[in-house]
Simulated assay, not measured.
Amino acid sequence: METITSLVIEAQGGDKKAMEQLYQQFRPLLLKESARYGELDLDCYQELSEHFIRLILDFKVRP
């Protein structure tokens, strides 16, 4: 089983499967935060998803 750290490193190296695994792990949180008032706000979900991907790609992993 891969750790989040190893998945982040692989995703930063261009591994699309690693990015997909990370996204699937955090998808419930993104959905929860996009549905604050009982309804899913698709615009919010899309913004959070894009921001999540950018954060993964920019995250600095310390050895």
Rank of each mutant, 00 (worst) to 15 (best):
M1W: 06
I4A: 08
T5W: 02
T5A: 10
S6F: 01
L7R: 03
L7H: 00
E10H: 00
Q12V: 03
Q12I: 01
G13D: 03
G13L: 02
G13N: 15
G13R: 09
G14A: 07
D15Y: 04
A18T: 00
M19K: 04
E20Y: 04
Q21C: 10
Q21A: 14
L22Y: 06
L22V: 03
Y23L: 13
Y23I: 00
Q24S: 03
Q24G: 04
Q24H: 12
Q25Y: 10
F26W: 04
F26H: 08
F26G: 06
R27Y: 12
P28V: 02
L29F: 09
L30D: 05
S34M: 03
S34Y: 15
A35M: 15
A35T: 11
A35N: 13
R36K: 14
R36C: 14
G38D: 11
G38A: 12
E39H: 12
L40H: 09
D41C: 07
D41A: 04
D43S: 03
D43R: 01
C44T: 12
C44Q: 11
Q46I: 08
E47K: 06
L48H: 07
S49W: 00
S49Y: 04
E50T: 08
E50S: 08
H51W: 05
F52I: 12
F52H: 04
F52Y: 09
I53C: 15
I56W: 00
I56G: 02
I56S: 11
L57S: 05
D58L: 03
D58H: 10
K60L: 09
K60V: 07
V61Q: 05
R62D: 15
R62P: 15
P63V: 07
P63A: 10
P63Y: 06
P63E: 10
